[in-house]
């Protein structure tokens, strides 16, 4: 390679590389080109406040994780002993209430839009699994509080889990096990599911209105909107 060659020639050469890495990059670029991953425009039919609840859910998740990380920094006892710790715990609780509220409203909205249409079933399903994983994460959070709530919830919930054989392996009265699930395993699962969900949304685009047909005699620019 001489320095005089045009940079795109390097790119072209790289794109032709027949190794695993090159293949993965080509696949990624084909499935999700940068302008689809981070588009600076959106379909004209996205004209409703209901679309905000997806991004609000992600924003609340960010606050949940952020406040959870502060609690993790100081350890599980901190919030019982310090007023600042108790305040961070309050933030963690209220951001979880917001997270689940936003997510459920997002779910209602996507249901009434039948948002699984047009090869978007996997987007719907990753969302549902993320919802169930969030419920599990919140539940293990209640178990990890080390107060009357945790005592009562664990001794009650054990019966349900034991009745279907899960309790033998997932012991809600084992504080250490529940704390690990709450701060490692389930958040990791939610993180993976969220990224997967968002990538699928970007890859397929936002679902068009039911029965909508793209205006054929117009190009896909913003000036189309005038009939």
């Amino acid at each position: 390679m001489s320095a005089t060659e045009h940079p795109t020639e390097h790119l072209a050469e790289h794109l032709d590389t027949h190794n695993w890495t090159g293949a993965l990059r080509r696949r990624a670029l084909r499935e999700l080109p940068p302008d689809r991953l981070l588009p600076d425009s959106q379909p004209a039919y996205m004209s409703s406040w209901i679309y905000l609840f997806g991004v609000l859910t992600v924003a609340a998740l960010a606050v949940v994780i952020g406040t959870g990380c502060v609690l993790a920094l100081k350890g599980p006892q901190w919030w019982h002993l310090s007023s600042l710790g108790h305040y961070v715990n309050s933030m963690h609780l209220w951001s979880v209430e917001l997270f689940l509220a936003f997510m459920v409203i997002h779910l209602w909205g996507k249901f009434f839009m039948a948002a699984w249409r047009g090869k978007r079933a996997m987007t719907w399903m990753t969302g549902v699994v993320a919802f169930l994983a969030s419920i599990g994460t919140a539940f293990t959070g209640y178990l990890a509080q080390q107060n009357l709530d945790s005592q009562w919830i664990s001794t009650q919930a054990k019966d349900g889990l034991n009745s279907v054989g899960i309790g033998a392996y997932f012991n809600v009265m084992d504080f250490g096990q529940m704390l690990m699930w709450h701060i490692v395993l389930l958040p990791a699962a939610i993180g993976v599911l969220t990224v997967w969900h968002l990538v699928l949304v970007r890859r397929r685009g936002i679902v068009p209105p039911i029965g909508a047909v793209p205006p054929e005699d117009e190009n896909t620019s913003e000036k189309e909107d005038r009939p």
Partner: peptide
């Protein structure tokens, strides 16, 4: 209330759109 409001409240149409 948030769900119903999100559906019923008019969404502002941006000027750049037309």
């Amino acid at each position: 209330i948030a769900f119903v409001a999100a559906i019923l409240l008019p969404f502002p149409r941006k000027r750049g759109r037309r």
